[in-house]
Simulated assay, not measured.
Amino acid sequence: MASLADQIEKYLRKLLTKYEGEVEIKRNQLASDFDCVPSQINYVLNTRFTVEKGYLVESQRGGGGYIRIIRVSLDSNRKTLKELISRIDGPITQREAEGIIDRLFDNNFITEKERDIMKVAVNRKYINVELPHRDYIRSRLLRGMLKTIIKHEDEEG
């Protein structure tokens, strides 16, 4: 039997497929549908619909609040990279950064060599600073690298 989190994830993925990669839901309604607390919905969103896994999640809290999930396809090039950059505005973990870098490689935005260099640049071993400063530095480094990729795409395109 699949866990509740698995069931919620499966349901949301089905909605994303049905509505072509973008869905807007009410957190409380979804929690009610699955007979769980809204924090369970947050858990699924925070662990299974992350930027590094190819999703953008926007939320509006309050009575008329909603959650919008957008599946990001990196084949839309410059626009998607700009959106990704705008989402990386706070601290980012090494795992999250490496996930983004792997998606760039998997979608042919960067070469294997560039991927390896980028992963070294965001590695905690080389950013020898205590948390939380390390995650902020990693975020700035990754944003800079993404901006450079966009710049070179513009020059090549």
Rank of each mutant, 00 (worst) to 15 (best):
R143D: 04
D102Y: 05
T93V: 04
I117K: 08
I85A: 03
S73D: 15
R68H: 07
A121F: 09
T80K: 07
A121R: 09
R143A: 06
A97Y: 00
E130M: 10
Y136D: 06
Q94S: 07
R124P: 10
K79L: 12
I85M: 04
E96A: 15
L104H: 02
I117Q: 08
L84W: 05
D106Y: 08
K79E: 15
E130G: 12
I137E: 03
R124H: 08
F105H: 09
Y126P: 01
R68A: 05
K79F: 11
I117F: 11
R140S: 13
R134W: 04
K82C: 05
E83G: 14
R103A: 05
N128S: 15
D75V: 13
K113G: 10
N77F: 09
V120A: 13
I85K: 03
R140Y: 08
N123K: 08
Q94G: 01
S76A: 12
L131Y: 14
Y136N: 11
S73G: 12
G99Y: 03
I110D: 02
N77L: 11
I127S: 05
K79Q: 12
I110V: 11
K113Y: 14
V122C: 02
I100T: 00
K125E: 15
L141D: 07
D89A: 03
L84V: 15
N123P: 04
R87K: 09
S76W: 13
E98M: 10
H133N: 10
R134F: 03
I110R: 00
S76T: 12
G90T: 06
R71H: 10
R95S: 13
I100A: 01
N107S: 15
D75S: 14
N108W: 06
K82P: 00
L104T: 00
D89I: 00
I101C: 04
R134T: 06
I137F: 04
Y126L: 08
I85Y: 03
R87C: 07
K113H: 14
V122D: 01
I69D: 00
I88P: 00
I100C: 00
S139D: 05
R124N: 14
T111V: 06
S73A: 08
K119E: 07
A121Q: 11
L141T: 13
R68M: 10
R138C: 04
R138G: 02
R103K: 15
G99C: 08
D135P: 03
R71C: 06
I85P: 02
E98W: 09
G99T: 04
I88F: 03
Y136I: 14
K125H: 11
L84Q: 01
K113S: 15
E130D: 14
D135E: 15
T93M: 03
H133R: 11
L141Y: 13
P132C: 05
R143S: 07
K125F: 06
S76K: 15
T111H: 07
E96W: 02
D102F: 00
N77C: 09
